[in-house]
Nucleic acid binder design. Structure first.
Length: 804
DNA sequence: CTCTCCCT
């Protein structure tokens, strides 16, 4: 059969011959995976390496090409993937899974004997493909200008890839796929309608309007089960309902996609049916419009799942599944209007994934991320977290260079965490590493990892059979070349891989734990491990506030002390306790965020106690006494006049409390702090000349015309004095303070200290209302002077002697 | 409303 790709094969070969590079865009079904490598064979010196994102696809591509040549796999065409290879010295086309390429380049940077590297399905933008392309491009630039590079992609903006590869020629092939009609909703689904209900309704409508079997895309297993429940009994009699998702064992998956003998089938599937599994007779696609994705949180080193709207690229990929065998129809659970708001592409893996292995590969290659041809740069923070984890595992030196231990970890086919565990604990850790590298075989069976290990070692247990077999095989492969070492418990081995996830039970009845990395995690109250004081957490649901533990193992304090001796230390802690309202001085023995032991610290140095007491002040506020307020008010009057004086507002004083440090007198409790008089401390904020100026311009006391000292009250809006009216006789200028000459608020009293007048202007008072005051008072206090013009009278505090 | 999908 003639495939549409054949029309452009000559262009691809020509681009490789003259430019040594090419970007080929062709839709799924165009035949690029099987035709391009064979077409390039005569044009390439040496072997052709083709990368596939999935094992199944790699094997299938090799088989198809070998069949085209009329040979068995392993002669001209072979494949190589983790744990399986069919290649010989005659092999010229080698189909490999993406992770393999990094290994090949790291062990032989010249790529000796390889003439061309093809990246298939590059639009999926896996971390390995991005890294692989960057490394191959560097090899081509530095060591091998004859090395050809071909990037093949279905839906992708070709411009950036072409630019990345120094303006590589772009070849475009139009597809062969059958027409697929797209149907949108007329009106958006109301927010109150559950997704499963809306999907079920749309499926019934689709089956009614179009013929053939249906493929329904849902975000996850839960949605699949609930939609299944809603549909069962409501489907037309000739329809069978089949769920399909990754956690099902292989045989069940095969049964779900098997063609129907009679009638139609409705397959409820996750994204597994987007690329990995092809269902042959589908002519209807129903797209719920959601995608579940892992979001890795570098801070906690854990990932969680989020459900998001699909991107346009994913929706197109799903739509295409209706046109594999004949024209079809795609029903979208959104309106045409809503479609504009969808993202163009799903997030690329390098921006969302755990970068630990990536960072180790970079270190081994000896390049920084910004020196490589990466289409999307990794986030600096995520990369920094990855490197810090690698440093803590001893894989990188603190300067970021790879260590011998790091080289050993890079050679192991596992996450560096598990590699570290294998390298330290030896062969005994192989089953545990295999278990943790696979999907959980006992979902919902409690968190204890030993349950799972027992299932691997024995034949009983109703665990996922195929999963168990994969784990046994994997354990066998991992064990090779590892030494036998002193036996360790499951928890101790796990702690090597997850030193940041050792959990110490919090106080209280709930099985809640604080993890050594600082995050929280909780066990189910019924969980078999719920009584343990110390556990190591292998997996959680990734909830950002407090994650739920999915897999864990108990560990003893003695084991932690042995494994992490150098990281456990006594930390003196002198701090303000909000709860107790006082300074507490303790010594704590800590491992990361865990407190293993906690004792009082009776001989804490005074300076430490004072520092902690300042935190108390920060919490309770400055203990203002009346005299302190008065002083601060005087200083404030000096401000804003061009003369530099400190800001004595609460905010300014609290901003840096060091000035208070020498005046705390060993106060430790809230009561003692509140009893402090801070006047002296405030005085210390002024230097000698400021103090002199203050005393002169804003004195604490007012000197009356008689030479008597009267305190000035600075606590109100205006500075204030109270004085006997007679004592102010002779005053022709109203008294004031400060460089701005702020007038004093003067309360003039009778000889019996009763207020007679409050004035801001004594000379005017003499001339005006004094006359009335004099009239009233002269009779009541006849022995005191009440002159007609007080501005020229002598001040006095005395009365005339009786009888004169 | 328990866990998308891959890979060394």
């Amino acid at each position: 059969m003639r495939l549409p790709i054949e029309a452009v094969l000559d262009d691809v070969v020509a681009a490789v011959k003259t430019h040594g590079r090419c970007v080929l865009m062709a839709p799924p079904g165009a035949g690029k995976t099987t035709r391009v490598p064979l077409a390039l064979l005569p044009a390439v010196q040496g072997r052709i390496l083709m990368l596939e994102p999935r094992r199944l696809a790699a094997r299938a591509a090799a088989e198809r090409m070998a069949a085209t040549l009329g040979e068995p796999v392993g002669q001209t065409v072979g494949y190589r993937m983790r744990g399986a290879a069919k290649v010989s010295k005659d092999t010229r086309i080698e189909v490999v899974t993406e992770g393999i390429l990094t290994r090949i380049i790291q062990s032989d940077p010249e790529l000796a004997g390889i003439g061309c590297v093809i990246f298939d399905e590059f639009h999926e933008r896996s971390l390995n493909a991005d890294l692989g392309l960057a490394l191959v491009w560097e090899v081509r630039g530095a060591l091998r200008d004859d090395l050809a590079v071909v990037v093949m992609s279905a839906t992708l903006d070709a411009g950036p890839v072409s630019a990345l590869l120094d303006a590589a020629p772009v070849v475009i092939s139009e597809g062969r796929a059958f027409d697929v009609e797209t149907r949108w909703l007329d009106t958006p689904t109301p927010k109150t309608t559950r997704l499963e209900q809306a999907v079920a309704d749309l499926v019934l409508c689709a089956l009614d309007e179009a013929g053939g079997s249906a493929l329904v895309f849902l975000p996850g297993e839960g949605e699949i089960r609930r939609t299944q429940a809603l549909l069962s009994g409501r489907l037309p009699a000739d329809c069978v309902l089949r769920p399909l998702f990754g956690a099902m064992d292989f045989a069940a998956q095969r049964a779900a996609i098997a063609p129907c003998e009679t009638g139609r089938k409705v397959v409820l599937a996750t994204a597994i049916a987007e690329t990995s599994l092809t269902i042959e007779d589908v002519r209807i696609v129903v797209d719920a419009g959601r995608a579940r994705r892992a979001r890795f949180d570098a801070g906690s080193g854990m990932s969680r799942l989020v459900t998001e709207r699909v991107s346009k690229a994913e929706a197109e990929q799903r739509r295409g599944r209706a046109g594999r065998v004949a024209a079809g129809t795609c029903f979208r659970l959104w309106t045409k209007g809503e479609e504009g708001a969808l993202a163009g592409f799903p997030p690329v893996e390098i921006e969302t994934a755990d970068l630990t292995g990536f960072a180790l590969d970079l270190a081994q290659w000896g390049a920084r991320e910004d020196e490589l041809a990466l289409l999307t740069p990794p986030h600096a923070g995520a990369l920094a977290e990855a490197r810090s984890l690698l440093v803590s595992l001893g894989a990188l030196t603190p300067e970021g260079r790879i260590s011998d231990h790091g080289r050993a970890l890079a050679a192991l086919p596992t996450h560096p965490r598990l590699g570290h565990m294998l390298s330290v604990a030896g062969a005994q850790a192989a089953p545990l590493a295999a278990l943790l590298g696979e999907r959980d075989i006992l979902r919902g069976a409690g968190s204890d990892l030993d349950l799972r290990l027992r299932a691997v070692h024995t034949q009983d247990r109703a665990a996922d059979r195929a999963g168990l077999e994969r784990i046994r095989q994997e354990a066998k492969r991992l064990r090779k070349g590892l030494a036998q070492t002193a036996p360790l418990s499951t928890g101790a081995m796990l702690a090597l891989a997850y030193p940041d996830r050792i959990g110490l039970r919090r106080k209280g009845d709930d099985p809640r734990y604080i993890l050594s990395g600082g995050k929280g995690a909780a066990l189910d109250a019924q969980d078999a491990l719920a009584g343990q004081r110390l556990i190591v957490v292998a997996d959680t649901d990734g909830h950002p506030r407090e994650a739920r533990v999915r897999m864990a193992a108990p560990i003893t304090e003695a084991e932690i002390r042995t494994l992490f001796e150098s990281q456990i230390a006594w930390q003196p802690v002198c701090e303000w306790s909000k709860r107790e309202g006082r300074v507490v001085a303790r010594k704590r023995e800590t491992f990361g965020a865990l407190v293993l032991d906690d004792r009082t610290w009776p001989d804490a140095p005074k300076t430490e106690i004072a520092r902690a007491a300042l935190d108390g002040i920060r919490q309770i506020g400055l203990p203002w006494s009346e005299s302190a307020r008065r002083f601060a008010a005087r200083v404030t009057l000096m401000r804003g006049t061009g003369i530099a004086f400190p800001d004595m507002s609460d905010t300014a004083l609290m901003a840096d409390l060091d000035w208070l440090l020498p005046y705390l007198k060993g106060a430790k409790s809230e009561a003692a702090l509140r009893a402090l008089d801070i006047t002296q401390a405030l005085h210390s904020l002024l230097d000698w000349s400021q103090t002199q100026t203050l005393e002169r311009d804003v004195p604490a006391q007012f000197t009356t015309p008689m030479g008597r000292q009267v305190p000035i009250d600075y606590s109100g809006d205006a500075p204030e004095i109270t004085v006997r009216l007679q004592e102010m006789f002779g005053t022709t200028r109203h008294p004031s303070v400060g460089p701005n000459r702020v007038p004093l608020k003067v309360t003039l009293t009778s000889p019996a200290q009763k207020p007679l007048q409050v004035t801001m202007d004594i000379p005017t008072f003499w001339k005006t209302s004094y006359t009335d005051v004099r009239k009233d008072m002269r009779g009541r206090y006849p022995r005191h002077p009440w002159p007609e013009d007080p501005s020229v009278a002598d001040p006095t505090l005395r009365a005339k002697p009786r009888g004169t």
